[in-house]
Design a protein around this nucleic acid. Structure first.
Length: 739
RNA sequence: GCAUCCUUAGCUCAGUUGGUAGAGCAACUCAUUUACACUGAGAAGGUCGCAGGUUCGAGUCCUGCAGGAUGCACCA
């Protein structure tokens, strides 16, 4: 028996060494598996593309959970003999990365991006991204992720750049990308547009002011933003509101706080007669809903009164004021004029930008959009309909299932997607202008062309991730083999950001779904159920955890009892329990191997297996068992059947728990204990038979457990006489054996 | 406002199609040169949020209510 079993299992001394051995074998790459005769060339493919971590820092426990789940599935499928590809990569995460680096520069050098200039800022961001990328890779490897590094991708590398330009052109040519002057969410702090999904609502106290535009104006209106009223062009009332029907269609002029305004009374069913006075002052340029109502009544969008810096652009006393100051000034003026009729305290949800915390100002801007309600050429359906259909038809299954409802609900509220951003880090919009001329896709030759200054929303490149990583727009062998991917596994918090957009982009570009199954995991919370965050100081660093307890223990703790879509609580105690489990298994191996040697079984088995290949596992019929041993084999068979089905149906939390329970409380507590008298007995035949049984049960146990605890199982497998492959990682999954 | 989820042992959570309530942790009793103290054996602990309904039978299906969480929208 190997001397290593005489000491307790030491993950720290084992895990790094094994990962290097796996990596050097090249067997993370399915092509190598085929070349070495481990996988059949025509085996069924199985693929997962890693959700690319942002190069904004380091991985957290949520990433560790993602890796634990994906690696378990990938290792299982690989052991099933499939051509298994798990493709790694990282995400440039445009706005997130740029704002991290900008903050850093501001803090350390007190400089803004404009002080540095576009080229210098990009250089700084790239340096930061590289450093962050290296840290992330180290973390991925520490967790034991069996990723094929030969195919590593980055959302902003040359291959992905080309794919982004090609998709943009294809969508533009299809008439689904347009440039338009539309009201967008403008973040004055970050100086960029943001998408609807990047808005975070915060509840604040506000005052609802009721007033008239002038003393002879017939209707009072209510607002929490009096400063915007200098931009009003109309007052809308409900068509059935008897108080106001007489005024509908009339127009009035007034001078409001030094600004001349022209107001038309319109009737629109969107207006809630019960709110405020039942009459809404419409400010089309600075409110989404007003813009839409104005559209219906052919009112002007042109009255712009707030600029990109959230300052007033009107003449008179408000000129140049910040909106917040202007609010006070308008209220003061209303009081002076005796126009203010009522003030009441209300709770208000205010829109803030997720990244900068800036208060979002709706502004009309010339931006690029993806249109979701226009039929896709050749498909006879809109992007929105394709989004619904791909899930409704069952082509994509979302786990847990109830998230499908959430998904549908989101799509029903989906508006055109603003894809241009006024930041510098990211994919520059592939559009060139020369006077009235425009070129889309690739840079044109000739003088005088100027490229669009803006960059694309980072989710535009993330949306094509499943196929850009496989070499599209080239029709590569990888693309043919591994797309659509089998599984997309990620946190439920990016269902809309990412998953929906991948479906949209893939349906448009390839006319297929990007993946067949979506597995959504929950948040990893601390032991008290709080979110992990820097400010609370309750973050767990996966590197610290693995250093202390081993990656196997961390992975197992993340998987057992953690159902998809549900948040989980994590604590060091939980992880410690699975470190103990690794040691338990280690000692089972020690006991079994010791007795196999004593009974003279080990060498006999090695003889038997010398010429075995991947495809021929040790079979029950090969070895003599007494009838008293059959029930143990049947019990193990039942476990294999259940665990296999659980993994196939993505019930990893059950599979892992069942294996754990079997190994500790059946194999160790019962079977080993019951075997002691036989192994110490006089009957040599019985002793040998029992030693063989234990060896088979151990062999099967490490195979079953390998997807969840890859290191300790591999380390034991390397010392097993039943070893029939260079690594457990590429050994066969235990099958139910006849006989 | 619209939608979704949750409520099961002291704690954290399972419970796949309806068929005698489960695990881990904690706590309790006992054992102790044992493959393993990173241990073993044992016992204890639950009107499955509340009220109805369907059924031979409901933790599971339906309706209502209460409490908690989340997402989306709106906030003129």
């Amino acid at each position: 028996m190997d001397e290593k079993f005489l000491k307790p299992y030491d993950p720290e001394a084992t895990e790094g060494r094994l990962y290097t051995a796996w990596e050097e074998s090249g067997l993370f790459n399915p092509d190598t598996c085929i070349a070495e005769g481990i996988t059949k060339p025509d085996a069924e493919p199985f693929s997962i593309v890693l959700p690319p971590p942002n190069v904004t820092g380091r991985l957290h426990m949520g990433h560790a959970l993602m890796l634990a789940i994906e690696d378990a599935v990938v290792r299982y499928q690989r052991m099933q003999g499939k051509r298994t590809l798990w493709l790694p990569g990282t995400d440039h995460a445009a706005i997130a990365t740029q704002s991290v680096v900008e903050k850093k520069i501001k803090k350390e050098e007190d400089k803004s991006r404009h002080d540095l200039g576009r080229a210098e800022l990009l250089k700084r961001i790239e340096a930061y991204a590289t450093e962050s990328h290296d840290t992330i890779l180290k973390q991925l490897k520490t967790m034991g992720a069996s990723l094929d590094w030969s195919r590593e991708a980055f959302t902003l590398d040359e291959t992905r750049n080309r794919a982004v330009r090609a998709v943009f052109k294809k969508m533009y040519d299809a008439g689904l990308i347009y440039r338009g002057n539309r009201i967008v969410n403008w973040d004055p702090k970050g100086q960029t547009t943001i998408s609807d999904d990047e808005i975070v609502y915060e509840e604040r106290d506000a005052t609802l002011y009721t007033f008239r535009y002038s003393s002879d104006f017939p209707i009072a209106v209510a607002t929490t933003r009096p400063e915007t009223k200098v931009g009003d062009v109309a007052v809308a009332v409900h068509p059935d509101d008897a108080r106001y029907t007489a005024f509908v269609g009339r127009e009035y002029d007034a001078v409001f706080c030094d600004v001349p305004i022209h107001i038309k009374i319109v009737a629109d069913k969107e207006v809630d007669p019960a709110f405020g006075t039942g009459a809404v002052g419409l400010t089309p340029a600075h409110s989404h809903i007003d813009w839409e109502i104005a559209d219906r009544h052919l009112l002007s969008h042109e009255v712009i009164i707030i600029n990109e810096f959230a300052k007033m652009t009107v003449p008179g006393r408000l000129s140049g004021m910040k909106t917040t100051d202007a609010r006070d000034a308008v209220v003061a003026w209303l009081r002076e004029e005796g126009l203010l009729e009522k003030e009441e305290a209300v709770k208000q949800n205010i829109s803030t930008a997720e990244r900068t915390g800036g208060i979002v100002e709706p502004l009309p801007k010339l931006q690029w959009f993806v249109e979701v309600d226009r039929p896709v050429p050749g498909r006879d359906k809109t992007l929105k309909e394709l989004l619904l259909e791909s899930v409704r038809s069952g082509a994509i299954t979302i786990l847990p299932e109830h998230f499908e409802k959430t998904y549908f609900h989101w799509i029903e509220n989906l508006r055109d997607w603003c894809i241009s951003r006024q930041i510098w880090y990211g994919h520059r919009i592939p559009v060139w202008y020369r006077g009235e001329e425009i070129t889309v896709g690739e840079a044109p030759s000739g003088e005088g062309w100027v490229q669009d200054e803006d960059t694309l929303d980072t989710w535009f490149s993330s949306g094509i991730w499943t196929f850009s990583t496989l070499g599209w727009p080239e029709d590569t062998k990888d693309l043919q083999t591994y797309h659509p991917t089998n599984l997309l596994e990620t946190g439920y918090d990016i269902l809309f950001f990412w998953i929906a957009r991948m479906i949209l982009m893939t349906e448009f570009t390839l006319g297929t779904v990007p993946f067949k199954t979506v597995y959504l995991h929950g948040l990893v919370r601390d032991a008290q159920g709080r979110k992990m965050s820097k400010s609370l100081g309750n973050n767990m660093d996966p590197l610290d955890v693995t250093a202390k307890f081993g990656a196997d223990a961390a992975r197992m703790a993340l998987i057992v009892g953690n159902t998809p879509g549900t948040d989980m609580r994590m604590s060091e105690d939980k992880i410690k329990g699975y470190k103990h489990f690794a040691n338990k298994l280690w000692n089972i191996a020690r006991f079994v191997l010791e007795n196999a040697e004593n009974a003279g079984i080990a060498s006999e088995w090695k003889e038997e297996n010398r010429d075995k290949t991947w495809a021929s596992a040790p079979e029950r019929a090969d070895f003599p068992f007494s009838t008293s041993e059959r029930p143990y084999l049947d019990q193990c068979d039942a476990l294999i059947t259940e665990v296999t089905r659980d993994i196939e149906e993505y019930r990893l939390y059950l599979a892992a728990e069942k294996i754990y329970h079997y190994i500790w409380h059946e194999l160790a507590d019962k079977i080993l204990e019951e075997s002691k008298p036989i192994l110490l007995g006089e009957d040599g035949v019985a002793r040998a038979a029992r030693a063989r049984l234990l060896l088979i049960l151990l062999d099967r146990s490490v195979r079953l457990l390998h997807p969840f605890m890859p290191f300790v199982t591999e380390e034991i497998f390397q010392s097993l006489p039943t070893r029939d492959a260079p690594f457990l990682m590429v050994a066969h999954w235990p099958a139910i054996l006849e006989g």
